[in-house]
Design a protein around this nucleic acid. Structure first.
Lengths: 139, 139
DNA sequence: CCTTGACTTAGAGTGCGCTCGAACACCTAG
DNA sequence: CTAGGTGTTCGAGCGCACTCTAAGTCAAGG
C-alpha cells in the first residue's frame, strides 16, 4: 500500500507518516522501483497502538524509546512492559485529577444554575425565562 | 502583593503572570508609585480556577472567552454557564476515552506479563521476525 | 553612596508536534 | 503526447503556551 492509502486507512496525513518515519517512530518501508513507499498492512496495528499512546498523553520522545526497544526484539519485552506500566500509572493519575476537577466544575456550574434560579423567581415568577430558549452568542 | 509573591502563592512564574495579563486572562492590577503591579489576594481564586480549566485541557483561547464574559459582569452568567457545560462535556468524553485506552493498555501489559511467564517456565517463546535497522533523526 | 534584588518593558527564543512549500519524478487516462 | 494526480526530498513555517533576554528603574540595607 502506498502512503496515500495508508494515510486514509490510518487517519494520519501523509506528512505525518513521513515525519514519524523520519524521527524513527515508524519503520522505513520498502520502496518500489520508482522510490515510492510500499507499506505492509501490519503497520496499521503499530500506528493504532501509537495512537493510543498519544491519546493517553505520551510524548513522542517516550514513544520513541518504546519504538527503539521494539526494534531490538523480544529481549526488551520486560523493559517495554515497565515503560508501559509507568505510563499507565501516569494516565491513571491524570484521570483521577480530571475527575477531581470535574467535581469542582460541577459545583461551579451548579452555582450558576442556582444564581439563575434566584433571578428567575425573584421579581417575576410567572414570566420565566425558558431554559432551552437561550443560544450562545457569536464571539 | 507584588508579582513575586503572587508567583510563589499561585504557582505560576512572574513571566507567566505578565503573559496572562498581556493576553487578557488576568485583569491588569493597580500599579504602585514606582509602576509595580500590586495584586489583591482575590486574584488567587481566579488563578486557581484558570488552573482547573487548564488542567482539564481548555485552550487559552477559550479561557479568554470566559474571562471576557466574566469582566462584563453577571449579565453574562448564563453564557458562562453554557461555556462551562460544554467544556464539562468535553472533559467527560475525554475521561471516557482515556479509560477505554487504559483497558487496551492493561491488555497489552498483560500480554507482556504472559510472555514473560512463558519464558520463565521454559516453554517455547514467540518467535519474532527481526526488524530492520534504520537511522532515526535525532530529536 | 553603593550594591543587591525585585521589579518594569518590548521583543526574541524555546519545545512540541506537526504542516506545508518548492521543485521535481513517475504513472495512468484521454 | 500531455495533463493530472500521486509520490519524492529538504527545509521552512506554524500554533500553542510559555520562557527568557536585555536594558533599564527603583527601594532598602550595609
Amino acid at each position: 500500500m502506498k502512503i496515500g492509502e495508508l494515510a486514509k486507512r490510518s487517519g494520519l496525513t501523509a506528512y505525518t507518516i513521513r515525519y514519524y518515519e523520519q524521527i524513527g517512530l515508524l519503520p522505513a518501508p520498502d520502496k518500489d522501483a520508482s522510490g515510492q513507499r510500499d507499506y505492509d498492512a501490519s503497520i496499521l496495528t503499530w500506528i493504532e497502538f501509537l495512537g493510543r499512546l498519544k491519546a493517553t498523553g505520551m510524548p513522542i520522545r517516550e514513544m520513541l524509546r518504546y519504538a527503539a526497544l521494539r526494534e531490538k526484539g523480544s529481549a526488551t519485552d520486560a523493559e517495554r512492559r515497565t515503560l508501559l506500566e509507568a505510563h499507565r500509572r501516569k494516565v491513571r493519575d491524570h484521570v483521577a485529577d480530571l475527575q477531581a476537577n470535574l467535581l469542582v466544575l460541577d459545583a461551579k456550574i451548579s452555582g450558576y444554575a442556582d444564581a439563575e434560579k434566584r433571578i428567575e423567581t425573584q421579581h417575576d415568577p410567572v414570566k420565566r425565562k425558558p431554559l432551552r430558549a437561550r443560544r450562545p452568542r457569536t464571539l
